[in-house]
Amino acid sequence: MRYVIFSLTLFVLLTLELGLKQLLIIPRDGGVTPSFTLILMVYIAVSAPRLTVIWAALVIGLCIDLINPLPFVNDRGVISVPLIGPSSLGFLAGAIVVLELRSLVFRQSPTAIGVLVIMSGLICHLVAVAVLTLRGISWLPTDAIAHWDISGQLVRRFFELIYSSLMSLPVGFLLLKLDPLFGYGLPVRTARSGTT
């Protein structure tokens, strides 16, 4: 995989994810927005070699952790702090799920990417929510996230997943068109040929 192309695509999708939030937001459960980076992770995970997928998932997760600071309460009131880890671990787990399932799908299909977005996103969000919830355990030397509501988080993230899955049809289609630029060099099974 060409890392420059990957970095540029990640930059563009991160920018779109942040910049178009107001346009794409669904005012429900605190605001539901699609995750373009999750689609990118799934797209790379269905095509790239295993080690590359792991690295790419970690990088995407780190970027998500950096751009989404979490609220904490201290003596100054509620502050936003970037916390590295939860999304990185979640994306890593999600990528591993796609690696296990990618031999079962036709990678040239945006629909397959949409289905994998749901499956890997479920694991990704469950891991992230579990890690963030662990911070609330009283005997750990950590401080809990302000206004943390695990059920609310799970509901909002589930709707985000559905939204991302729908958005993965056009975004996945565009990403699949960029295949020659990424240069995976991996023999893959296609819907048309049915062979590897």
């Binding site: 904490f72 880890g85 671990l89 890593l92 890690v131 963030l132 750990l140 030397p141």
Partner: peptide, 10 residues
Amino acid sequence: LFLCSMMPSS
């Protein structure tokens, strides 16, 4: 990453 996740907010 897990240790980083459990890091105090300060």
